[in-house]
């Protein structure tokens, strides 16, 4: 008689990282709300000290629109960090549990789990980095830096690991 399938937990360090990520998301969300005025004031003040970066022309009617867009994106960066960190924390727990349960081969399992954990944890930090960079280097340059340092490498790692996991699960289904 076949043994009934049971879920296996991923390593504890993976669960710890995922839970800490969710904690960071919640603290980030609460801080955004609590320090909204201070954050906006800091971002605006920093942008005003870098007028050339933001293309400020010294005319209120023109500059207010530029500053408003940058502040909206600054806020969006913080919000997207909050949402992605919450979501990716859960994604890490779910996908690494699937990997721990269904990926049996030794080199593949730790590799998939590591990619999912590192990729999923670092990806949301890209939004935090983008938001922090906007006042100093502007919208587009900040986005490009966040893309190449965080979003593409860590987002790519997560996507590759997810496809790999999907392939392993599909293969198990075929071999059944």
């Amino acid at each position: 008689m076949r043994e009934p399938p049971t879920w296996r937990l991923p390593p504890v360090w993976v669960l710890l990282v995922a839970v800490v990520l969710i904690v960071c998301a919640e603290v980030g969300g609460a801080s955004m709300s609590r320090f909204k005025i201070e954050l906006t004031r800091w971002a605006r003040g920093t942008m005003l000290t870098h007028p050339a970066v933001h293309g400020l022309v010294g005319v209120r009617d023109v500059d207010e629109r530029i500053l408003d867009e940058a502040l909206v994106k600054f806020d969006a960066g913080l919000r997207l960090f909050h949402m992605h960190a919450e979501g990716m924390g859960l994604v890490i727990i779910a996908t690494t549990t699937v990997a721990a349960t269904l990926v049996r081969t030794a080199p593949a399992r730790p590799l998939i789990i590591s990619l999912l954990t590192v990729g999923g944890t670092c990806y949301p930090l890209g939004y935090l980095l983008w938001a922090a960079l906007i006042p100093y280097v502007g919208l587009e340059r900040g986005k490009a830096i966040a893309e190449w340092l965080v979003w593409i490498p860590f987002g790519g790692a997560t996507i590759v690991a997810l496809w790999w996991l999907a392939g392993v699960v599909a293969l198990r289904l075929v071999r059944r």
């Binding site: 009617d61 207010e64 629109r65 408003d68 867009e69 909206v72 994106k73 969006a76 960066g77 919000r79 997207l80 890209g126 983008w130 986005k143 893309e147 979003w151 593409i152 490498p153 860590f154 987002g155 790519g156 790692a157 997560t158 996507i159 590759v160 496809w163």
Partner: peptide, 19 residues
């Protein structure tokens, strides 16, 4: 090819507001 969607990430939209 598998990782290329990582380059497409949502960064929010801006709708100009009245002053």
């Amino acid at each position: 090819a598998l990782a290329s969607p990582a380059a497409a990430h949502h960064v929010g939209t801006y709708t100009p507001r009245d002053n």
